[in-house]
Design a protein around this nucleic acid. Structure first.
Length: 419
RNA sequence: GGAGGGGUGGCCGAGCGGUUCAUGGCGGCGGUCUUGAAAACCGCUCUCCGGGCAACUGGAGCGUGGGUUCGAAUCCCACCCCCUCCGCCA
């Protein structure tokens, strides 16, 4: 959520900034509502101030003057009317504000689409193979480690089953990544709920705008998380943190559930895009002046996984038009998949500045006696599972269709070859 | 799910419907004293929304939302959460 004071003070800046991401905000409508609200507020508060004063006098009187009581009764009715008006106005205003995305950081390249994203740096060059690499769905089926048919039998399209060494490989990658971030990068491991309340989804920015991508249990109003970013954002909702505890760094492994309505018909082959997938997520709560620096470190932490697994990758800076709703600045990490011949997005690291912190009301006290301020929040995959498995299968395949397991995973898999 | 008890400021804990603008204590911060510290004493200690360049000033907040009343932490209703016991259960 944007600071309403910013919109009030500098509406043109807000409009221009949002135009860069090809979004627009009902800025003038917001301003009109805000002004109306303050007018009502002034009247209600003046009446209340008078009532407080009269009440104090009334309390000490033995014989209460009936005409004064009558006047106060009338004032009370008026206050109630004003409050009702304000309540509905505030609700509409809030609805508008919740629809407006974050303002891009000035350092983000202005662009119109994917083609304007910038490759910041690359890892190792892809190995030259002396045979035609197969896509993972062929490898997986032949090796009996991915079962598409039975996945569909159980749950329909976009579901699959990992079996035997395939399931074990995925579990190994998860454990390896968690250990790496906990031991080498000093994140605190968190096991959060996978179903959360509606207000958590609002806090992270997934609601009210993106409900069509979420699974929802209507009976108990539980929402299934599309990423661990949601529970992690809400970990410190409605809290005031001490400056001395920042930065807070968390890592969580969770399944993620997405309806993928928006991408119907895309990536239907293989395990690249499913309704359920696993992910290890990195999350930080930091002070505002450190957030861009912390974003760079976050990207390095995610990148370390690709380096350790020795998989070709590149880091992309996302242009203004491609930024996610709550993000002010983002980098993607893509791994090369020689079988399907594409770069797979395995991580997206974002600085959400105070956007989520405002929605979820997460603040900190800069110093003793200092005024509280909103923290900045950062999130990044570290990394997203099925796609890392794809990258392993396709990069480590051999001409006979077997797969060599990356060395870093040996202690976790207990085997070195899948055949 | 059933029965009973309870939700008050960072923590503990008072609070006959109107001198409570939420008593008191603990913790925290500042000060006096001290070679230093402790103790003692004094003062300060929350958040949000308005108005004002500012000093400052008005309003709101006692789990949440309604209601009664001129006036609600205090009375009424609903819901949520926690504790104890029972039931069920991996």
């Amino acid at each position: 959520m944007l600071n309403i004071e910013l919109i009030r003070r500098n509406p043109d800046f807000v409009k221009e900034s949002l135009a860069k991401r090809h979004d627009s905000a009902p800025v003038d409508e917001v301003l009109a509502m805000d002004e109306h609200r303050r007018k009502l507020l002034y009247e209600a508060e003046s009446l209340r101030a008078r009532r407080n004063e009269v009440s104090k006098r009334l309390a000490t009187m033995k014989d209460k003057p009936q005409d004064v009581i009558a006047e106060m009764r009338e004032a009370g009715d008026r206050i109630k009317t004003l409050e009702e008006e304000m309540k509905s106005l505030e609700k509409s205003l809030q609805e508008l504000l919740l629809q407006i995305p974050n303002i891009p950081d000035p350092s983000v390249p202005v662009g119109d689409g994917m083609e304007d994203n910038i490759v910041v740096r690359t890892g190792d060059e892809p190995k030259k193979l002396d045979f035609t690499p197969r896509p993972h769905w062929e490898l997986g089926e032949r090796l009996g480690i991915i079962d598409f048919e039975r996945g569909i039998k159980l749950s329909g399209s976009r579901f699959y089953i990992l079996k035997g060494k395939g399931a074990r490989l995925q579990r190994a990658v998860i454990a390896f990544m968690l250990d790496l971030h906990v031991k080498e990068h000093a994140y605190t491991e968190v096991y959060p709920p996978f179903m959360v309340k509606r207000e958590c989804m609002v806090g992270s920015g997934n609601l009210p705008k993106f409900g069509e991508n979420l699974y929802h249990d209507a009976e108990d109003d539980f929402w299934f998380i599309p990423t661990a970013e949601v529970p992690l954002t809400n970990l410190h909702r409605d809290e005031i943190l001490g400056a001395d505890v920042l930065p807070l760094k968390y890592v969580a492994y969770t399944p993620c559930f997405r309806r993928e309505k928006m991408s119907a018909g895309k990536d239907v082959r293989g395990i690249k895009r499913g309704h359920q997938f696993d992910k290890v997520e990195l999350y930080k709560f930091v002070t505002p002046e450190k957030s861009n620096e912390e974003l760079d470190k976050l990207v390095r932490d995610a990148e370390e996984v690709a380096r350790a697994l020795k998989i070709p990758y590149r880091i992309i800076q996302v242009c203004t038009a491609e930024l996610g709703f709550p993000s002010a600045k983002s980098y993607d990490l893509e791994m090369w998949a020689p079988g399907c011949g594409e770069w797979l997005e395995v991580s997206s690291c974002s600085n959400c500045t105070d956007f989520q912190a405002r929605r979820a009301n997460i603040r900190y006290r800069p110093g003793v006696g200092a005024k509280v301020e909103f923290v900045h929040t950062l999130n990044g995959s570290g990394l997203a599972l099925p796609r890392v498995v794809i990258a392993i299968l396709e990069n480590y395949q051999r001409s006979d269709g077997s797969i060599a397991v990356p060395e870093a995973l040996h202690p976790y898999t207990g085997f070195e070859v899948i055949n």
